[in-house]
Computed example of a mutant assay.
Amino acid sequence: MILGDHHTFEEFKQGNLAAFEKFFEYYKRPITLFANSILKNRPEICEEIVSECFVKAWTRRADFENEGKLQAFLYVVAKNACFSTLKAAHNNNHIDIASLSEHTLKEDPYIVNHLIREETLALLRKEVDKLPASQKHVIQLSYYENKDIPSICNQLKISSNSAYANYSRAVSTLKKKFQNKKDWLF
């Protein structure tokens, strides 16, 4: 999941706070979800960790070659901070480390799968936003709001044939967009 705005990235590297805020808003949620997956829903600690990640990224902003390197840096710093937090909590007897699942303490396919899922959903949302308005509305109502065809027809004031046609065109377009990325996604 990359913002993909080269101009904003260059401004970030040069110290532009508005560019930093764009990256913060874009990456804050996925990094927080990632930290939560390791720390098992300790939101106050995750919030601190995410803040630390961005402070470190800001101080090292000139070192990043591209946004992909920034993204990788944020995840690595978050992972290391989470593991340090778990280790410190164990040493201070705040948590029983034996009660944590084994996968929390090492590299885990779950974490990787979670990241891939988040990035895939972000890519999908981007592609849905590019669809023509009629197709976009049908897909959004169907998938994001979990509405059935009669509800969609009522809300958009269209016939069921029109709803099915827009849905079919949208799915076909999305399949074509992701066809080349199939190996990466799966």
Results as ranks from 00 to 15, higher is better:
148 D>W: 09
21 E>F: 13
96 D>A: 02
74 L>M: 06
93 N>Q: 10
100 L>T: 11
140 Q>L: 12
87 K>Y: 03
56 K>Y: 01
4 G>E: 09
174 L>V: 05
168 S>M: 11
19 A>W: 02
150 P>K: 10
58 W>M: 02
93 N>V: 00
98 A>Y: 15
172 S>K: 11
96 D>T: 09
184 W>E: 10
131 L>M: 09
123 L>A: 10
39 L>T: 03
139 I>W: 03
73 F>E: 02
74 L>A: 11
151 S>H: 09
119 E>N: 09
139 I>M: 04
81 A>E: 08
121 L>F: 06
98 A>W: 15
90 H>C: 02
116 I>M: 08
121 L>G: 06
2 I>Y: 12
132 P>R: 04
128 V>C: 00
10 E>V: 14
51 S>R: 15
79 K>M: 00
20 F>R: 05
34 F>G: 14
171 V>P: 02
55 V>N: 15
113 N>I: 00
120 T>P: 03
175 K>M: 07
49 I>R: 03
120 T>F: 14
39 L>A: 07
122 A>G: 02
104 T>Q: 13
9 F>L: 07
127 E>C: 10
29 R>K: 08
155 Q>F: 13
66 N>T: 11
78 A>N: 03
154 N>R: 15
28 K>R: 12
52 E>P: 08
64 F>M: 02
53 C>D: 01
153 C>R: 13
82 C>V: 15
172 S>T: 10
186 F>W: 11
43 P>L: 02
125 R>N: 06
10 E>Q: 10
136 K>T: 01
77 V>S: 10
97 I>N: 04
127 E>Y: 07
109 P>Y: 13
170 A>K: 05
171 V>G: 05
64 F>T: 04
166 N>D: 01
9 F>A: 03
11 E>Q: 08
51 S>P: 13
144 Y>S: 01
65 E>L: 08
129 D>C: 15
28 K>S: 08
180 N>Q: 14
125 R>E: 03
110 Y>R: 06
172 S>Y: 08
93 N>R: 11
35 A>R: 00
41 N>G: 05
77 V>T: 09
7 H>F: 11
38 I>Y: 00
144 Y>I: 10
159 S>A: 07
104 T>W: 08
137 H>P: 00
40 K>V: 12
69 K>S: 12
111 I>C: 15
144 Y>C: 04
81 A>S: 14
62 A>S: 13
109 P>R: 13
88 A>W: 12
46 C>G: 07
69 K>L: 01
137 H>V: 07
56 K>F: 00
81 A>R: 10
17 L>A: 12
172 S>V: 10
49 I>D: 02
70 L>R: 04
9 F>I: 08
119 E>H: 05
150 P>T: 08
74 L>W: 04
135 Q>I: 10
112 V>G: 07
110 Y>D: 11
181 K>S: 01
93 N>K: 11
90 H>R: 06
21 E>I: 13
3 L>G: 01
40 K>Y: 09
125 R>Y: 03
139 I>P: 00
36 N>Y: 00
171 V>S: 05
12 F>G: 02
147 K>A: 09
159 S>I: 04
72 A>N: 14
8 T>Y: 06
180 N>T: 12
106 K>M: 11
30 P>S: 02
114 H>R: 02
95 I>P: 00
5 D>P: 07
102 E>G: 14
165 A>G: 10
16 N>Y: 06
152 I>R: 04
162 S>F: 06
26 Y>T: 07
162 S>Q: 08
103 H>A: 10
141 L>F: 12
118 E>A: 07
